[in-house]
Design a protein around this nucleic acid. Structure first.
Length: 467
RNA sequence: GGCGCUGUGGCGGAAUGGUAACGCAAAGGUCUGCAAAACCUUUUUUUACCGGUUCGAGCCCGGUCGGCGCCUCCA
């Protein structure tokens, strides 16, 4: 299996340190607000990575963090913790805010059929691991203390800017934001922030440096290494994390351990809505709830995500989501054919096996999901034309189960029509032969009311269920 | 200001330099008792524009115009 590695900017084979185990760490949400469609695009892509590792006989151990403390808002003069700010906005404590949005996030993950990570780890439950890591960095001389916190001295880490391929000097020339002048360099970042003197935070802990809370970056280093060891096989996140968050993670982790932090970095690109980045200020962050309330299933969102490559600048629009939903409907109609095989069906075991192989190859080559769907659509068209041979019913059923496990769709979950409905269908067949169109149309209308669509082919009636 | 990405048909979205996948949508046709489906055709000689390299360019090079991202928190 191959994957594009941001570290080398090349597509490389995945070579786990301890196969078949593969350690995967995903930067999870900061739980101060609802997640939007852009987040879901990327979590679905990470979920897909896990599933594709599995079909390649690997055993991923998936860790995802929940940032529930320490993530600062952008305004330099304010520099407030997003959780504390959210709490003030909603008249709750930071703990309540974190709890609420964490639950909402996990619920949406379930709706989208995203696999549950083996470990979902919260920053607030790993304060000790984080302070231990800071201590280690302090002992090795990578830190310094100024009035608002303990900072990491990026100048002590050679090649700090290499991962993101940044030219720090040039960037500073045009920096848009003033930084704390006590910092030795603009790229230095907080490991531990002190609680403000004028008011009490909801979330704060004692530390060797004083009462306060951890910086945002340190949590991912501390928790990923706790659960997956000093070197991770794969680390994933959004593309925006490359220049700051992941660069800082590498600096902290490698300075502390002296070994390589991550072998393969996978980054999902941003999703554009109306050709603009999704942001709070533009108000274009569509929530999953909004999609579901319009009667579009979460499964269609997933299919929409699979239609583009994770490294491309994908676009989201209601129109393209509708297109994905229509495509999904035709896939479900195909799946319903598993109850309607015939002796003259053209599709056989071999065809099914070939399609499965082709899909696996596409996915294993840097997650070419769009190509996998191309193969699936080709099968769908052929089945629509030729039907499935009765001898291949089991093979087709197994294929649907495999597709669901691999792509996270729900094609195998459909049920057969009832005996009564089968009887009606048979009656309709008889009335069609005798050209009793009135009865035939009446039965079709009855079944349609029960959510069953009928299509007449030259040799048989085919049904598909609304879902 | 610096760094980087990008521009493919109505929409979405692929394409080691070799003659533009696939999905969705619309229109016409074949088929059909009707409807749907399926199939064929059209929208679609064409990859923002100009020039260059090449036997050959959507892919490489230069320029022009447009879009986007990062440098500040971000999936």
């Amino acid at each position: 299996m191959q994957l594009y590695n941001t570290l080398t900017r090349k597509i490389e084979p995945i070579q786990p340190l301890k196969p078949p185990a593969v350690g995967v760490y995903t930067c999870g949400p900061t739980v101060y607000d609802y997640a939007h469609i852009g987040h879901w695009f990327n979590y679905i892509r990470m979920d897909l990575l896990i599933r594709v590792l599995q079909i390649n006989d690997l055993k991923p151990l998936w860790v995802m963090n929940i940032t529930d403390v320490g993530h600062l808002v952008s305004d330099a003069d304010e520099g407030e913790d997003k959780l504390e700010k959210g709490a003030r906005r909603e008249g709750k404590t930071a703990w309540e805010v974190a709890d609420f949005y964490t639950k909402d996030f996990l619920e949406c993950m379930h709706h989208l059929n995203i696999l549950t990570p083996d470990h979902i780890v919260k920053a607030t439950e790993h304060i000790e691991e984080q302070t231990e890591l800071i201590k280690m960095l302090e002992q090795k001389g990578y830190t310094y203390v100024i009035d608002d916190g303990v900072y990491y001295d990026t100048s002590k880490f050679p090649g700090y800017a290499a991962f993101a391929r940044l030219d720090l000097d040039d960037q500073q020339a045009g920096a848009r934001v003033q930084y704390n002048t006590q910092k030795r360099s603009a790229s230095d970042f907080a490991l531990w922030k002190f609680s403000p003197k004028d008011h009490k935070r909801d979330m704060e802990w004692d530390s060797p440096w004083g009462k306060g809370f951890p910086g945002w970056h340190i949590e991912c280093s501390a928790m990923s290494m706790k659960y997956l060891g000093s070197t991770l096989d794969i680390h994933t996140g959004g593309i925006d994390h490359i220049p700051v968050h992941h660069t800082n993670e590498i600096a902290q982790s490698e300075a502390a351990t002296g070994v390589r932090f991550v072998n393969t970095w996978m980054h999902g690109n941003h999703v554009m809505v109306n050709d603009e980045k999704i942001s709070k200020s533009l108000g274009n962050g569509i929530r999953l709830q909004e999609i579901i309330s319009k009667g579009i299933p979460a499964e269609a969102v997933r299919l929409h995500v699979l239609e583009s490559h994770y490294r491309s600048h994908s676009k989201f629009s209601w129109e393209s989501l509708e297109a994905a939903n229509n495509r999904l409907k035709s896939y479900h109609a195909m799946a319903d054919q598993k109850w309607q095989t015939t002796d003259v069906g053209l599709i056989n075991d071999n065809d099914i096996k070939n399609i499965q192989t082709a899909i696996q190859e596409s996915l294993s080559n840097d997650l070419q999901t769009f190509d996998a769907l191309r193969h699936l659509s080709a099968l769908e068209t052929t089945i629509d034309t030729g039907g499935i041979n009765a001898t291949s019913q089991d093979a087709f059923n197994a294929f649907l189960l495999w597709i669901d496990a691999t792509l996270g769709l729900c094609l195998s979950t459909g049920s057969d029509i009832t005996d009564k409905q089968k009887e009606l269908l048979e009656q309709r067949g008889v009335s069609r032969k005798t050209k009793d169109w009135k009865t035939s149309d009446m039965i079709r209308a009855t079944l349609l009311e029960e959510g069953i669509d009928i299509k007449d082919s030259a040799t048989q009636q085919r049904w598909s269920k609304r879902f």
